[in-house]
């Protein structure tokens, strides 16, 4: 995983609630055996007609908006556990997703791929949507160390992140590195835990 770098970026607004992972990356595009290239089909059915032509008024096709920060309505990433959703957002170029509420599995998948989910209040989220509507060039600053998200010329909010996941993002560590360092404890655990489920084997 790459290290997360603090950033100041323009934003791409998606003021829709309950955006599910089937919209982020439809199932028919999950047929790869590698992690690369999913950005091409990010929001496929909102972004392209069935003949492959772009749908001009979808935000990713609208040159008015750009940047590494996606701002979306509440309950972003609900539905399927497909990590491909996080891969697609990252591959497309997003490094931060801002919403007032995230689905659990998506949040975990994003954090495991260097994509920072920032949960803000509904009021701040709406403030961002209004600001971008007024001026699409408005920028947001994300400071992971201080856990602060600031909207240019307006307010800021502190966001929560698990201290362990923060350390991982700042250093580019994967969970697997930590877990591998725990092997002895894991083996000791196996010896003392009830293991009825192994008895049928």
């Amino acid at each position: 995983m790459e290290k997360f770098e603090n950033m100041t970026s323009r934003v791409v607004p998606l003021p829709i609630e309950d955006v599910d992972t089937d919209q982020i990356i439809p199932a028919r595009f999950l047929k790869a055996v590698t992690r690369e290239g999913f950005g091409e089909n990010l929001f496929r059915d909102w972004r392209y007609l069935s003949n492959g032509n772009p749908i001009p008024d979808f935000v990713l096709n609208d040159s008015t908006y750009a940047g590494k920060i996606l701002v979306a309505g509440r309950n972003f990433g609900c539905g399927s556990s497909r990590e491909h959703a996080a891969w697609a957002l990252y591959d497309f170029g997003f490094r931060v997703v801002v919403s007032s509420f995230f689905a659990d599995i998506f949040r975990g998948n994003a954090l495991n791929n260097g994509l920072l989910p920032i949960q803000v209040s509904e009021a701040f989220l709406q403030e961002i949507f209004r600001a971008v509507e007024d001026d699409p060039s408005v920028e947001i600053e994300v400071d992971l160390e201080a856990q602060i998200i600031s909207l240019q010329g307006a307010g800021q909010e502190r966001f929560e992140i698990d201290p362990y996941k923060k350390m991982c993002l700042q250093n580019g560590y994967d969970d697997i590195d930590y877990l591998l360092s725990q092997k002895e404890k894991i083996e000791a655990f196996e010896k003392k835990a009830p293991r009825y489920f192994m008895m049928g084997l």
Binding site: E83, N109, D175, I176
Partner: peptide, 11 residues
């Protein structure tokens, strides 16, 4: 997610 699938495979 798949990163976690890998973690469970490894540990």
């Amino acid at each position: 997610g798949t990163s976690q699938v890998e973690q469970v495979m490894a540990t």
